[in-house]
Amino acid sequence: MNLTSHQLKLLAAFLALYLIWGSTYFAIHIAVTSWPPFLMAGVRFVLAGTLMYGYLRWRGAANPTLAELKGATLLGILMPAIGNGFVTLAQKEVSSGVAALVVATVPLFAILFARLFGHTPRKMELAGVLLGIVGIVVLNMGSNLQASPAGAAALLFASAGWALGSAWSKHLTQPKGLMSSAMMMLTGGIALLLGSFASGEQLAGMPPLSGWLAMLYLAVFGSLIAYTAYMFLLQHVSAAAATSYAYVNPVIAVLLGVGLLGEHIGPAELLSMTIILAGVGLIGWKKSPR
């Protein structure tokens, strides 16, 4: 079967989201062994946002207006800063696989927040939310989250922040095209650096090569490439298809955590992964037209 150029681009974008965003939990685990979490996340997003902004300006893109900058700043605080920053914080105590499982609840939170903006959930969406809540309860029965209530709270806060930003983004004035992602990463990164300073984070010493490589992987691949792929998919496929990474990322993260980090995933975690992903599947499921 011969694939068109457009189909190849779609395939590459899907693979980027599935593999790269699934592997970022592994990279975060490596990075936070030598970086303070908020500082590392702040440097990651400021670097990625600066590179993307510089490239877009070089290509002739206009600077955002004040109204667009306000919208991008709000989303930057909710999504990169809260949504990613608190995942990074939690991974000081919680395994990368379990972190990915909790973050898979983002579509569940998004359905709840969407009600604030006039969206009435379908019965399948409500069923998915309820199933996701059951999955979180089961996940909490496992040893990973029980050992770190603070880590569990940080992950749920991160998921809620990302979901609120996702729901709100459709109602906010934002910069056009990829400039929106650039401004979100820049403002979110600055918010994380301010949070790092306010919380008294300090580098214990110069990070080793592995710490620098993990941070750079997150900045270049996790932010620049994956964000670009995500924006491309949102323009060319349905939202349900674009957000299908929520099904795959936890599986990738669990496999990498077990295979490369020696993390332990017990029966409660495996059962919760099945339940949570089934809930996400119900949210994305739509009856085919006859």
Rank of each mutant, 00 (worst) to 15 (best):
T4A: 03
H6C: 04
L8H: 14
K9A: 12
A12E: 11
A12F: 14
F14E: 01
I20H: 14
I20N: 12
G22E: 07
F26I: 09
A27E: 07
I28D: 08
H29N: 15
H29M: 06
T33P: 00
T33N: 15
P36M: 03
P37T: 03
L39R: 10
V43A: 15
L51A: 03
Y53S: 00
Y55L: 14
Y55S: 10
R57S: 03
W58G: 11
T65K: 00
T65N: 00
L66R: 15
A67R: 15
L75F: 02
L75W: 04
G76C: 05
T88Y: 10
A90E: 07
Q91W: 11
E93Q: 15
S95W: 10
G97K: 11
A99S: 13
A99T: 07
T105L: 10
P107F: 12
L108A: 15
F109H: 10
F109G: 06
L112I: 12
F113W: 13
V129I: 11
V129P: 10
G135S: 02
M141A: 13
G142R: 04
G142F: 02
A147H: 06
S148H: 06
A150G: 11
A154F: 09
L156A: 08
A158P: 04
W168A: 00
H171K: 04
H171R: 06
T173P: 06
P175F: 02
L178W: 01
L178C: 05
S180E: 03
A198Q: 14
E201C: 06
L203A: 04
S210R: 09
S210V: 04
L218W: 07
L234V: 02
S238P: 09
S238A: 09
A239S: 14
A240T: 13
A240S: 15
V251K: 08
I252F: 13
A253N: 15
I265W: 08
E269W: 09
I275M: 04
A278I: 08
V280I: 13
G281I: 08
